[in-house]
Simulated scan of single mutants.
Amino acid sequence: MKNFLVYALFLALLLQLSACVSKKDIIYFQNDEIDQSKVSNSYKTIIKPDDLLQIVITAQDTEAVVPFNLGMVNFSATGGAAMGMQQQLNYLVDTNGEIDFPVLGKLKVGGLSRDELITLLKNKLEPDYIIKPNINIIITNYKVTVLGDVRRPGNYTIPNERITILEAIGLAGDLNISGQRNNVIVQREEDGKKTQYKVDLLSKELFTSPVYYLQQNDVVYVEPNYAKIQSASANSNTSLFISITSLLVTVVALLIR
């Protein structure tokens, strides 16, 4: 009986030690040097299928731009009668990367940056339709998703269409202490295919990563460390473990009488 109790205490001690986290597994940016030649502050958003584009065209000739701007629609808070705040209709980029633009018809916009789309529209509008048009484009459903071992997992809408992986993690309340900082996954769709990147938050090389700046619809996943996984597994089996331990103690007590 004594040996059994000693073994149980030893097992509990091992489980406790396995849950310990080293300081070097927590602190960000502690490893490697930054290669400044690879650091770039340039960033451009690439238009993708399922993006909602708000395109507003203005010019001195206000009548000339009317056919090229989608109308305003009234929305009520309850979705009933047409009242309340006005909202401009948006263009949905279809699975072929196209939008149906007034007068001009189908336009291939997928894969273009904002500046490239502005240039495309200007070339098609000027001078036949509008003289010196001003074009403003916004992706109204620009969002990123942060999942896994963070404090506030969820979807986050980004109004300025520019966000780093660190800012996204900040929106999610930072990693929990049990989150794996050296194996953060970023899932991105590129050319119609799902691509995964691994990011090490412990390394300064993060700043040269191709996913340091996130794109719309990127998914950031933080995996829990081994101790967290083991702890979750242990908690789910706590009742069973207690029952088995009680049974074993009873059996041992009867045998040593």
Rank of each mutant, 00 (worst) to 15 (best):
K106A: 08
Q60M: 08
I177M: 10
P224L: 11
I57T: 01
I139F: 07
K193S: 09
V150T: 05
T95C: 07
L175P: 02
E161R: 05
L92P: 00
V150R: 00
E190C: 03
T58Q: 11
T95D: 15
V73I: 14
G71Y: 04
N69S: 08
D174E: 15
A12Q: 12
N3D: 15
E161Y: 02
N155T: 13
R151G: 07
F75M: 13
K106Y: 02
P153W: 03
Y43S: 02
V184W: 01
K132A: 14
Q86M: 09
V252S: 05
L120S: 06
S40I: 10
I55F: 03
L202N: 02
N123K: 15
Y197G: 01
F101N: 01
L14N: 14
G79W: 06
L112I: 03
S236M: 09
K24T: 12
R188C: 01
L112Q: 04
R257L: 13
T164I: 05
T195S: 07
Y226I: 14
L166Q: 06
L206R: 01
I256Y: 10
A64F: 03
R181Y: 08
D25W: 06
K228C: 04
I135Y: 02
R257S: 12
S42L: 14
E126H: 10
K108E: 05
Q30Y: 06
R181G: 04
G84A: 08
S246V: 08
P133Q: 04
G71S: 13
D94I: 02
L214C: 05
S209A: 07
E33M: 11
L17V: 15
S243A: 15
L13C: 11
N136M: 08
D218C: 04
L121I: 07
D94S: 04
F241T: 14
L53E: 02
I135E: 01
E167I: 02
F75I: 14
D61T: 03
G170W: 00
S113I: 03
L254I: 12
Q215Y: 09
F101I: 03
N183M: 13
V211L: 03
G71R: 14
L201F: 12
T45W: 01
L9R: 11
V211P: 00
F68C: 04
S236Y: 09
S178V: 11
Y7S: 14
G110N: 02
T208F: 00
Y156A: 03
K122P: 01
S231N: 13
L89H: 05
N3H: 12
K198V: 13
Q196I: 09
N235P: 02
Y91C: 00
E161Q: 15
I26Y: 07
G71Q: 09
I26V: 15
E190N: 07
D149G: 06
V39A: 05
S209C: 04
P210A: 06
E126T: 15
T238M: 13
G111Q: 07
G111M: 07
Y43N: 05
I135C: 03
Y43P: 01
V56E: 11
K132M: 10
P224K: 10
N237P: 03
V65R: 00
I34T: 10
V150H: 02
L14K: 10
I256L: 11
Q216N: 15
N155P: 04
D128A: 13
T238E: 11
L248V: 14
N134Y: 08
G97R: 02
C20N: 09
V186Q: 01
E98S: 09
Q60Y: 12
I185K: 09
